[in-house]
Amino acid sequence: MKKDSQFDRRKFVKYSSALVTSSFLMPNINFGKGTNPDDEIIGHGDFKYKVKKEWGNQDPAKYPVKDCHEMVQDKKGRLILLTNETKNNVMFYDRSGKILKTWGHDFPGAHGLTLHEEGGEEFLYITDHNRHQVYKTTLDGKILLTLDYPKETGMYESADQYKPTETAIGPNGDIYVADGYGKSFVIQYSAKGEYIRHFGGKGDANDQLKQAHGVCLDTRKKGKPELLVTSRAAQEFKRFSLDGKHLETIQTPGCWICRPVIKGKNLYFAVIVTKSWKEYDGHVLILDKNNKAISSPGGSKPTYVDGKLQSSSHIGQTFMNPHDVCIDQDENIFVPQWASEKTYPILLERV
């Protein structure tokens, strides 16, 4: 979609939303009855969204899910969901919410899903923290490469200590694996799966991490790709060079952020929790090209005091443990959720 037409569409939706809002100024005897949850508008500034909670719903007898961990979009526009339900680990949606196909029965700890194009063909990288492995597959599910636990590092006594949660693919095809539920190292491999180096690890030092839950390749700086790594338990993320040198730490107080997702010049996170793991108090966080928070759909408005981002909190009950975000060509956000009573992904339609 061309930029101008997309802008015009947003202006029309905003104008239509204003008309709907103004109607509440008139008496309405049905106000508060039969309220449609899809009418909810969340977000801040130019990043506001209409909530579509029913978007991904399916017949659980036919397409069951457990935890909906992550989602990506391929060149055909299909939304690809990863769940740890072994009846259908990988589910392909079209943008209307219809299931196109499913596959996968062997990933009980399916967690991380990365899409990467090589030579014009797209491939998936799947992490399984139960099986302590990482897999490269075709879009039809054929396994092409398996990475076992990184005994080459000298940091692991057994596979049980290694629980990978995410991957990122470098510009030369190198594979970076985040051991988010294990020892919080990031392990770098060649495209063929040959060990190169490891960095990070649990700790409080600048170049260490606390729950390296997510990693992504950041290409927003022209000619200078970097890695963004989530240090989720510390409520921050860190910038690293491609050879593992720490560059910067960026705090996100009050936000237990999941993997970083780049779309255009902006950075997106699912915030799985803000204050309590016993409540559904997560939201989404959006940062600009300078990594400054500009919107938190489902949460409080990002506020800075003396240049420091203030602690975040959720508003309402939009989400049930959001675990990832996938942003499509119209900048709508698809949100799969963890431990959410086997619910399906929801759609945030940008307005």
Rank of each mutant, 00 (worst) to 15 (best):
Lys2Trp: 14
Lys2Asn: 15
Asp4Pro: 02
Phe7Cys: 01
Arg9Tyr: 15
Phe12His: 14
Lys14Leu: 14
Tyr15Val: 01
Ala18Gly: 14
Leu19Trp: 14
Thr21Phe: 14
Ser22Pro: 04
Ser23Gly: 12
Ser23Trp: 00
Met26Cys: 04
Pro27Tyr: 13
Asn28Pro: 02
Phe31Met: 06
Phe31Thr: 12
Thr35Pro: 05
Asn36His: 10
Pro37Ser: 07
Ile41His: 05
His44Ser: 05
Lys53Pro: 08
Lys53Ala: 06
Trp55Leu: 01
Gly56Thr: 05
Tyr63Thr: 13
Tyr63Ala: 00
Pro64Gln: 11
Val65Arg: 00
Lys66Gly: 08
His69Tyr: 10
Glu70Ser: 15
Asp74Arg: 05
Leu79Thr: 01
Asn84Gly: 10
Glu85Gly: 11
Glu85Lys: 07
Thr86Leu: 04
Lys87Val: 01
Asn88Tyr: 01
Asn88Ile: 00
Asn89Gln: 03
Val90His: 05
Met91Ala: 11
Gly97Pro: 07
Gly97Glu: 12
Lys98Val: 05
Trp103Thr: 07
Gly112Ser: 14
Leu115His: 15
Glu117Gly: 14
Glu118Cys: 00
Gly119Asp: 01
Leu124Ala: 10
Tyr125Pro: 11
Tyr125Phe: 15
Gln133Tyr: 06
Leu139Phe: 09
Lys142Val: 14
Tyr149Asp: 04
Glu152Lys: 10
Tyr156Cys: 03
Glu157Leu: 04
Tyr162Thr: 03
Ile169Glu: 00
Tyr176Trp: 08
Tyr176Lys: 03
Val186Thr: 15
Gln188Lys: 11
Gly193Leu: 04
Phe199Asp: 02
Gly200Lys: 00
Gly200Gln: 07
Gly203Arg: 12
Ala205Trp: 02
Leu209Glu: 01
Lys210Cys: 02
His213Ile: 01
Val215Cys: 09
Arg220Ala: 01
Lys222Pro: 09
Gly223Asn: 06
Lys224Val: 15
Lys224Ser: 15
Gln235Asp: 12
Gln235Cys: 07
Leu242Met: 07
Gly244Thr: 06
His246Glu: 05
Glu248Arg: 07
Glu248Ile: 01
Pro253Asp: 07
Cys255Glu: 09
Lys265Gly: 09
Tyr268Ser: 00
Lys278Met: 12
Tyr280Asn: 14
Tyr280Trp: 09
Asp281Phe: 06
Lys289Gln: 11
Ile294Val: 15
Ser296Trp: 00
Ser300Glu: 12
Gly307Met: 04
Lys308Leu: 00
Leu309Arg: 00
Ser311Arg: 12
Ser312Trp: 02
His314Pro: 13
Ile315Tyr: 10
Ile315Gln: 13
Thr318Asp: 07
Asp324Thr: 02
Gln329Asn: 15
Phe334Asp: 06
Gln337Tyr: 10
Trp338Lys: 03
Pro345Gly: 11
Leu347Trp: 00
Arg350Tyr: 01
Val351Ile: 14
